[in-house]
């Protein structure tokens, strides 16, 4: 087999944050009220950014873009969108 020279290597590698620190895009921050949350995982399945931990229902704010889909889809109203400072 031919040796893989630099020219054949991919130019990019899978990594988080390929679009930068996307948490800085946020206008509103989703905040989970764990008292109300039933851990149904709806927010997890619809979050486009894969930033919700499906078991803990905690959010990685470093990358969460604040789209509000999780809050809109939560059947119990456990997620509120709070304005960022």
């Amino acid at each position: 087999m031919k040796s893989v020279t630099k020219a054949y290597r991919p130019i990019s590698w899978p990594m988080k944050g390929a679009g930068g620190e996307t948490g800085t895009w946020r206008g509103h921050r989703p905040v989970v009220n764990s008292q109300i949350c039933t851990k149904c995982q709806f927010c997890w399945v619809y979050c486009p950014e894969a930033v919700i931990d499906r078991y803990e229902i905690t959010i990685d704010y470093r990358y969460c873009k604040g789209c509000g889909v999780c809050a809109a889809e939560c059947p119990t109203g456990a997620i509120s969108m709070e304005k960022e400072e």
């Binding site: 390929a18 679009g19 930068g20 620190e21 997890w44 486009p48 950014e49 894969a50």
Partner: peptide
């Protein structure tokens, strides 16, 4: 939903708009 695998092939912090349906 609860039976879906954990595998994440779309990585957090990508360049898509917030709420992107394609992602």
């Amino acid at each position: 939903i609860k039976k879906l695998p954990d595998t994440e092939q779309v990585l957090s912090g990508n360049g898509a708009c917030g709420g992107c349906p394609a992602t």
